[in-house]
Amino acid sequence: MTSESAPIFARGVRKHFPGSERPALDGVDLTVRAGRVCALLGGNGAGKTTMIRILTTLTRADEGVVRVAGWDVRAEGTRVRASIGLVGQYAALDEVLSARENLELFGRLAGLDRRRARERAGELLGTAGLQEVGRRPVGSFSGGMRRRLDLATSLITIPAVLFIDEPTTGLDPQARRELWSSVRALTAAGTTVLLTTQYLDEADALADDVVILREGRVIAEGTPGDLKKLVGEPRMELREPTLEDVYMHLHEGVAAS
């Protein structure tokens, strides 16, 4: 398989929002191979959300080649959208409708007929652990419940490529672990996942590949293992380096240069 036909392929992506002093993305390359989980790691303003929005056709890049599921995001937007699921940084749900009505609405929009949409909503409420509250308006949901419903909404038809922007921000430790296991179940089913995170342990636990973004540039990439080797031998403490060490190491390097 050539890398251009990889589920996620981006070369030289540049995005400069009008009025901001530096580009949000400054020549980003990113390839994610089929069935892998890639974590886009970076601090606030690193450009993670902008990258996800470009890959999901929501924002147009100024420059660069971007292909998702084999299709060009610009020329074949609808085909891209038919192959992806998106869980944005902020839950995108109808607050007035119930959880079930939200799922039915998005099921209908995905092309299911009324009966099938109702069945699928029931299944997804079950998987998300929301059967009990399925009839409650989403406006009354906690952050974690919204997050789970938001994920369920993007799984009405199992997407070939799933994008999750900061999946576990605001979740308690147990909910985080549950979300991780749903992501793993998806990749077992063949879905390719790109997630963004500010948490190194999350990237460590979940990702096959890690790409570290800083001020719109990729400053390091590799498997969590590769990246840990960057730090070299454990120094003071007798323990394995963590991604946290890698991150601090890279930051010191960047700051010094």
Binding site: T78, A82, V96, L97, I158, A160, G190
Partner: peptide, 29 residues
């Protein structure tokens, strides 16, 4: 969980989709 990868149709149906979205407002009422 199903193992099929989505091959959702790429044809869009503007009236069907618009009616579904309008129906959302009726549910708001």
């Amino acid at each position: 969980m199903t193992t099929t990868i989505s091959t959702a149709p790429v044809r869009t149906h503007v009236w069907r989709e618009a009616l579904i979205l309008a129906g959302r407002t009726l549910r708001h009422w």
